[in-house]
Design a protein around this nucleic acid. Structure first.
Lengths: 225, 225, 225, 225
DNA sequence: CATGAATGAGCGTTCATTCAT
DNA sequence: CATGAATGAACGCTCATTCAT
């Protein structure tokens, strides 16, 4: 494993095969449901639309999932696991210096987060979190939280290199991700007009990398309580 | 005006009185609608529930607002203007040093943002932004954006004092607000368990203040492109 | 009175003046209500629309008319009396021969009956007749029935002239009116495409006049039981 | 085929069976809807009433018909095709002389047209014709127009016999039908009191037959332009 | 297991009507 | 007498869910 590879091994899914045909239908339903839920939100989506988009009958939905809420839960888990995680984790960082490495990482994060899929997923998870207790937990474990953990380990690597200094790499990772949501990601979330060109993304990423280094480069933590 | 006062003058609302009774009913409806919309989201809220909570008949809703969407828009505007803005803006900072001032500010921001009202408003605005183009704009102008502007002016004050150095105070303000959403605010948004005690808030705020100073204290911007 | 004048003296309306202003408002309401009822039918019309078109408030409607049904009744009476009757009755026939006189009359009838106003009035009266017992009676007394009576008297005139022979001029009048509804009027009622040019109207009218004379010219009634 | 038989072969309906149960429900809904629409008109009928009368739930209505308008269209087509056409067309005329044949035909027409079903159908079609462009066309093709065509062919038969003389049998047919609407049918349409006893019907029919012969018997067309 | 018709509660909205001002 | 806000029943229609086939 390359020292710069921050990818995370995909969890070995138990994935008892049950029946190939059944799994195919389940996949078909999940695909349709993901499309509709992300477009319309939980309440805005209707089981009829989902059945239609998935190309199955409404009854089939209920053969595979107990009800709308259960289907929604499965959709979020599937998305968090399969769509979001790969986006964020499989990053091959090719930088030489530490700061440049974080700049590249910020660039990738921002680029990923402003895409429609992750944006929509973020929206729906945040908005339904109060009504589905398990949902945000799922999203966190497979998505954001996982990224934070990966990032924290990567930061530990740089600590070993002597390029970063902190006694709380997890907090540092969270802070880095918070910084990545400055301006572009933030405004996109509100559908406000914002320049999201690669050039602007890189410009913001550079400022983030610079800021992160300013905070955590060895010697800057002295004053901290 | 105290130099540390970052409050913003409330916009002189035209607020043509029309009729006292009519305005009272409008207020009554808005109050009921705010409660329901924040609880259930846009699609999840029903006009019947709103009428019930507001203590008026369903027909009355439609005498005051053209339809559900218009009522929702009015609710968001009212909340952004009346609930969020005061929370964020009317802060009397009593600090002596610059860093301590930003720590206090971070503390106030976090404390505000983790409260149920702002959390719910954030949720609904983010989730409905794609379906209501005007909505996020309203929220931004009266809420977040206004806070950013206020904060930027405050930062300019510290620049004049020689305590902060940057040529882009608005970006710095956005970065400060992004930092404030590390850990507690972020996790609360996902309804994840997190220590939001005043002590922990203060601890996070201190780290934010320290980080912000590390980024923007005079002399740290030299390496920046 | 010209022997060819088949107009009917307008009934001396009691029309107690009450108040000029009140009558003006009543007129205003009737005008608005007529427009809406004729456009949308009884059930399809709403009191709100009527109030809006009439330029008065909804409450005012109920100050002048007990309810929707009463307003509708007044509208039909007003239309039957004021719009339909004059159209049909005030005909100056300038013909020389009896047949040509009936041709001219048929021409006028057809021309009148295919116009939007009378068509709509016919539609609404026919369709609401079962639900408003008085309504069709009103329409008949002031509209169709009055025309039949006028026509019957006019036929009697021709009987005296020896140009027509029948012992039942009222039935003859009804038959003449039935004939006038052949083709053009009939098809217009179903909104079917039909040539309603003056030339075609005249062509049909000639056939009607000819047919009527064939039925009622002296000597043709001999075989009748 | 008897020369006096003016019946028309029922169109071979494709009537793909799809499923017996589905067609039965459709029939059940149409029956309920016909009853309600004919009683109350299009706007006056409510989908709830129809569901109730048909003995199904409201949702079922919408499984079988896209909306109220589509259901209404299907009702009119069904009535025009199934109820009106047979009434009018399947007439076995047993007359010997031509005039007596037309008297019998008039008698049947009048008898049919004064019955509640055809009366109500006429009312609703005439009143909704402006709002449903296809509707009157459907009614005409399956109902009135078909009758006119059948009648025209029958008239041609009498022309061949030398009993009738005209170069426009279709217009003659229309004229005959117009004559049939004298007095009884006309007044019934306005719900006016009128003697509709078989004796009176026969009396009117005799006058119509006599009139029709007077117009079209050989030799009477000479004066025509 | 897939289907799709059936359900009835509930949706957003409009209605005719009332009544305090 | 004019007004327009208030009402709640009813509107056309959609919903999540069930179940016989």
């Amino acid at each position: 494993m390359n020292k710069n590879d921050i990818s995370v091994p995909t969890e070995t899914e138990a994935s008892l095969p049950e029946s190939a045909a059944s799994n195919a239908k389940r996949r078909q339903i999940l695909d349709g449901a993901e499309a509709i839920f992300l477009e319309s939100g939980y309440e805005g989506a209707s089981m009829s639309q989902i059945a239609c988009r998935a190309g199955v009958s409404k009854g089939t939905l209920y053969n595979h999932f107990e009800n709308k809420a259960a289907l929604f839960g499965a959709v979020i888990e599937d998305l968090s696991r399969g769509k979001l995680a790969p986006f964020i984790c499989q990053s091959q960082v090719t930088a030489i210096t530490c700061e440049e490495a974080f700049v590249q990482l910020a660039e990738r994060f921002i680029t990923t987060l402003v895409q429609p899929g992750p944006q929509r997923l973020y929206r729906i998870v945040v908005s339904e979190a109060p009504h589905f207790p398990d949902l945000a937990d799922t999203f966190w474990r497979h998505g954001f939280g996982r990224t934070v953990n990966t990032l924290a380990k990567w930061i530990e690597h740089w600590i070993e290199q002597g390029a970063i200094e902190t006694d709380d790499p997890v907090f540092a990772a969270e802070q880095f991700m918070a910084l990545c949501q400055t301006r572009i990601v933030q405004r996109k979330r509100f559908e406000l007009p914002v320049d999201s060109s690669p050039e602007h993304v890189r410009w913001v990423a550079r400022r983030i990398g610079h800021a992160f280094m300013a905070i955590y480069k060895p010697g800057s933590q002295t004053a901290e309580g």
